[in-house]
């Protein structure tokens, strides 16, 4: 009887088989903050609490304008890589995605999972709460040079 258990464990440990073509998505409603995913995932500028919110807002704009992928970060820590927003497919620094940097929204959209990452096509922004994560008193600006000395 141990063999089936081992076999099941072995199957469970295997990575999911890669999808070979576009897949059906799943409709979801999700609330989250538009973040710069490179700074968040790489830790290049500090821990995950420092690279979100008002403290990181300027950098989030720089990264979005620079074409770094934008994600929706939920309160539970899930991240959905944003593919489109309300029909706008410009996710490499377009006006829509740039203007939403650091904002928290509730989105109705289609969710996809591919090779360990979540992706979302935002079909409708149900609510735009603006920037609600005010963490600048904890972290200042991240990076520290976000505001030029002459403008401080």
């Amino acid at each position: 009887m141990r063999l089936p258990v081992l076999a099941a464990a072995a199957f469970a440990a295997l990575p999911a088989a890669p999808a070979l073509a576009a897949s059906e998505g799943e409709r979801i409603t999700v609330t989250g903050e538009f973040i710069d995913t490179w700074c968040y995932f790489s830790g290049v500028m500090g821990g995950p609490d420092a690279v979100v919110g008002t403290a990181h807002h300027t950098c989030a704009m720089w990264c979005s304008a620079g074409g770094i992928p934008v994600g929706l970060l939920t309160p539970e820590g899930e991240i959905y890589m944003v593919l489109k927003i309300e029909g706008d497919d410009n996710n490499t620094g377009g006006d829509t995605i740039l203007s939403l940097a650091s904002s928290t929204i509730t989105a109705d959209g289609i969710y996809y999972e591919r090779d360990g990452l979540n992706y979302i096509v935002v079909e409708e922004i149900v609510e735009d709460m603006g920037i609600v994560n005010e963490n600048h008193l904890d972290f200042g600006t991240v990076p520290g040079f976000a505001i030029p000395p002459a403008e401080r």
């Binding site: 073509a21 576009a22 489109k84 996809y112």
Partner: peptide, 9 residues
């Protein structure tokens, strides 16, 4: 194209 590969669009 990620959007194409994932969604078919």
């Amino acid at each position: 194209d990620l959007t194409c590969e994932i969604t078919g669009d």
